[in-house]
Write a protein that binds this DNA or RNA. Structure first.
Length: 888
RNA sequence: GGGCGGCUAGCUCAGCUGGUUAGAGCGUCUCGUUUACACCGAGAAGGUCGGGGGUUCGAACCCCUCGCCGCCCACCA
């Protein structure tokens, strides 16, 4: 006999170990099995998994388990991402907190060694969390973006793209993170609207004493680097000034006034200062006009030696105040306004203001790589689920900018580029090859220095679907499992990751990396707030698992997954699904108590009893619905279907209706019902397994201890395939009738305040669909569930009589009439409603003066008649309804 | 400025290509120790489906419009 309750704490680790020992997570070696593969979105090794990972990984596991049970060679490939900046920041912060020396003092090698230490610990934590989540991923294939194989893939890709001219070095403005002193990509910049100021400065016109050009700026400190003032070519105010020069205050430089469309006459004063080295727009203007780009900042965003001496070494924000003050003193401050402006912040720290900065970096020609990636989604080689996300994908890819892939960090893939003494660049996969190339180039062995920079972390992630399968080796896995079938990920990394995997996958494998991209929502807290460590509202999945069990957490994730963008996680909901597990557990106990054991060779096709034929059909329908839903990744629909079937069909009705049989004397019916109950429960366990693997596996084992031996663990048990002709319309009609009848009687009892203990006689007068025979057939069920003593049939009751009696209470209606009255009331109400609309419309028409004036008399007459008819009809119906209301 | 979501019961959300009386869970109220389950059972209350207009025999669903809320993208001094 099963214990009183299911104990997740003890069962979960035991079963997980059992699955691993059985090798259940590895794809079947059966060569005829259709492959089904998923690569995990590799979690960052920055720390531990949050609840969002729990959602994402639950969905992947549901799919993997589902397809595995369907007999496919299911591979879910796990791994982690080195997460360049993020991890380096975490470790640096940790070093600082522990009072250690900084990374610069420590040196590159020692610092990287420290990060590796951190990585070992962190990936262990993550692995443990995934296990606790029941993730059935194939640990033997686990990968890390910085491991040897993946690093080789990264080098090969870089070198090949370089040789193809798709990677190049360029000097242009980048988004510079002055705190870390590295370039970051556009995507890592978060523009935040803040309150700021707009200052208006006067730049004196050369040779015209007392004449100024007034420019507006939100960034006074960059004026040191101005190399022009631009006005719109058509702006009359400045026509005569174009081609002249102004003095740039504080520097004593003369800069030209140029005409450029970029200057908007409507904005500010119509004249705009141009600082090519510190503004993306100005950079472009500068290029058009051949302006010098004067960099005024040091890498940590202090004013450099270009600035007048008094500003040198000042932080950019200190310099701003100083410059404004000095301009004011010189009488060159025309004014200052409050102004809302967008300030670019570093997405990771949310504290550091990103600086457009002129540097040499490596770029990927993303526009070229994007073309096939766009086409692949357009022609359906890869589909998004939900479909709408392809818009987001297209939008970005169609307007893509060159991808800056170099980072001035230490943690990551070192760029495979070496520099000769004269600066000549050798891009090769290894230093040996680079030296050889250099020797050939210089006609003599020549020492080289490797590029100090590392690659953007997303560079290696972009290769993930094939690098994890062993590429550049032509491995068996690559052949079998690439392209992967489904990618499950959050919409926040469609640009960062999905689009780039598409680009790289198509370029290097000539096939899309995945056929389907399932986008899952973001999880928020109960109040709809984004979870963050600083807010302290982060829910740790392990804490939930400890409290409610893994199955409940997983089921919650699946059930909530239908929501478009964000889902609110409530503990109550998890609790509800924990209760669902308990319900299933107790239903299983019921079957044991009633000796509902599985029977060797039992075939549901042959069941005779109506109830059993009914549940057979219900089971078939459920299997169909769940299968269809899972195929479409409608996890919420699938979960709801199973939930309702187990609770509201099997427990509420099948189990209840089977009691009279199980306690009765018809041995044949009893044996059949027992076998059928066991069979039905088995199907329930199978269907529920992808969602709640632990409780189902446990019950599978426990219930398998009597009867024919199980042939294997539930995890590898085939998904049910049941014939559609097991649905029995006649049995459905019969049981539906019983269910409706019982439901009605319960409602009537409650309305009539029949005492709970009372078992009144029930007299049915021509109940809907009721015949003596039909009543007798289900008498036990009805009496038990409706809690009645007897059912007596009478002849159609005379008008005004009392044909239906429950206990002491007197009712004016029979059950049948009661049902009919309700239906009739509803029908009448609806009809009246319809007439109301008609009356309203017609009355309105007749009230329209124009209509009366223009329409023919007979048309008006027609409408009057119609209105009158509708009104009389309504009056009649209302009277009828009123009568019914008094009777009811 | 573009794009995308959302607005349905007190709360969190379902409601597929328009079709009987708009559903679930939680919460609330009433009743219940019927031999699986109080992490349970029975019943009830509670909704002008954001507002307005339109199409239709019929709209939560389609069209138009307005209003909030949220997200993403965008170089505007």
């Amino acid at each position: 006999m099963l214990e009183k309750t299911f104990d997740p704490q003890s069962v979960e680790p035991r079963l997980y170990a059992q699955w691993e020992e059985a090798g259940a997570f590895a794809p079947t070696s059966d060569p005829s099995a259709e492959p089904f593969s998923i690569v995990i979105p590799p979690p960052n090794v920055t720390g531990s998994l949050h609840i969002g990972h729990a959602l994402n990984n639950t969905l992947q596991d549901v799919l993997t388990r589902f397809e595995r049970m369907r007999g496919k060679a299911a591979l879910w490939l796990p791994g982690t991402d080195h997460a360049g900046i993020a991890t380096q920041m975490v470790v640096e912060r940790q070093l600082a907190a522990e009072g250690n020396i900084s990374r610069r003092e420590m040196g590159r090698e020692a610092f990287v060694a420290k990060i590796w230490e951190w990585k070992e610990k962190s990936s262990g934590t993550i692995q443990n969390q995934l296990r606790r989540l029941g993730a059935s991923c194939d640990w033997s294939r686990e990968r890390f973006t910085l491991d040897d194989g993946l690093s080789a893939a990264v080098r090969k890709v870089f070198v090949q793209l370089h040789k193809e001219g798709l990677i190049y070095r360029d000097k242009r403005l980048v988004n510079w993170q002055p705190d870390l002193q590295t370039a970051v990509s556009d995507l890592e910049v978060e523009n935040v609207e803040v309150n700021g100021h707009m200052w208006r400065f006067r730049y004196p016109v050369e040779g015209q004493e007392g004449r100024y050009v007034v420019v507006a700026t939100t960034r006074p400190e960059t004026m040191i680097g101005d190399t022009a003032v631009a006005v719109h070519p058509g702006d009359e105010r400045y026509q005569d000034l174009v081609g002249q020069k102004v003095w740039l205050p504080l520097t004593g430089r003369l800069i030209p006034i140029i005409a450029d469309d970029y200057a908007d006459p409507e904005k500010g004063t119509g004249a705009v200062k141009i600082t090519p080295a510190h503004d993306f727009n100005d950079f472009r203007v500068g290029q058009r006009h051949g302006l010098e780009a004067i960099n005024v900042f040091t890498p940590d965003a202090k004013l450099n030696d270009v600035a007048p001496e008094s500003y040198r070494g000042l932080d950019r924000f200190v310099a701003r105040k100083r410059i404004v003050a000095d301009m004011d003193e010189l009488g060159l401050l025309d004014g200052v306004d409050n102004h809302r402006l967008m300030v670019p912040y570093d997405e990771k720290s949310k504290l550091v203001v990103i600086e457009p900065y002129l540097t040499d970096q490596w770029y990927v020609d993303a526009a070229t790589l994007a073309k096939p990636a766009i086409a692949a989604v357009e022609n359906g080689d890869t589909v998004f689920v939900p479909k709408n996300w392809d818009k987001t994908y297209f939008e970005w890819l169609r307007n893509i900018e060159p991808w800056c892939v170099s980072r001035q960090l230490w943690w990551g893939h070192r760029i495979p580029a070496w520099y000769g003494p004269d600066g000549h660049i050798f891009v090769e996969e290894t230093e040996t090859e680079a030296l050889a190339a250099a020797a050939a180039h210089y006609d003599a062995p020549t020492p080289l220095t490797q590029d100090e920079d590392v690659l953007d972390t997303w560079f290696s992630s972009a290769l993930w679907p094939f690098s994890t399968m062993g590429w550049p080796q032509e491995t068996a896995d690559l052949k079998r499992f690439y392209p992967t079938h489904t990618l499950v990920t959050g919409f926040d990394i469609i640009f960062f990751w999905v689009a780039r995997m598409m680009m790289m996958g198509l370029h290097f494998q000539h096939q899309v990396p995945f056929k389907r991209v399932v986008i899952n929502a973001l999880i928020r807290d109960e109040k709809g707030q984004k979870m963050s460590k600083t807010k302290g509202n982060v829910i740790d999945p392990l804490e939930l698992i400890d409290a409610y069990g893994c199955d409940a957490v997983r089921f919650t994730m699946a059930a909530m997954s239908g929501q478009a963008r964000d889902v609110r996680l409530s503990r109550q909901r998890v609790e509800g699904y924990r209760n669902f597990g308990t319900k299933l557990w107790n239903a299983s106990r019921f079957t044991q108590m009633n000796e509902c054991y599985r029977v060797e060779g039992f075939d549901p096709a042959g069941v005779k009893d109506t109830l059993n034929r009914w549940i057979r059909g219900q089971t078939v329908k459920t299997v169909q619905d769940v299968t269809v839903a899972l195929e479409a990744c409608a996890f919420d629909v699938a979960a709801a279907t199973i939930y309702r079937f187990i609770w509201n069909v099997v427990c509420d009705w099948y189990v209840e209706l089977s009691k009279p049989i199980l306690n009765g004397t018809d041995e044949a019916a009893k044996a059949e019902t027992r076998a059928m109950t066991a069979w039905t429960l088995d199907v329930c366990l199978t269907l529920l397994h992808p969602f709640s693997p632990f409780i189902t596996e446990e019950l599978w084992d426990k219930l398998g201890q009597v009867g024919p031996a199980r042939t294997g663990l539930l995890i590898t048990t085939p998904w049910p395939k049941l014939p559609a002709d097991w649905i029995d319309a006649e049995a459905d009609a019969e049981i539906d009738w019983v269910v409706d009848l019982v439901t009605e009687v319960r409602s009537v009892r409650a309305e009539m305040n029949v005492p709970p203990g009372a078992r009144p006689p029930l007299t049915l007068a021509g109940a809907q669909g009721a015949t003596r025979e039909r009543l007798d057939r289900h008498l036990d069920l009805i009496l038990t569930l409706a809690r009645l003593q007897s059912v007596t049939e009478v002849e159609a009751a005379p008008a005004g009589s009392v044909p239906f009696v429950i206990g002491e209470a007197t009712a004016a209606l029979s059950i049948a009439e009661f049902i009919d009255v309700r239906a009739e009331q509803a029908r009448l109400k609806k009809e009246i409603g319809g007439l109301d609309g008609d009356i309203e419309r017609t009355a309105k028409k007749l009230g329209n003066v124009d209509f009366i004036a223009r329409a023919k008399e007979e048309v008006v007459e027609e409408n009057r008649a119609r209105l009158a008819d509708a009104q009389t009809a309504k009056a009649k119906l209302e009277a009828a309804l009123a009568r019914l209301d008094t009777v009811g």
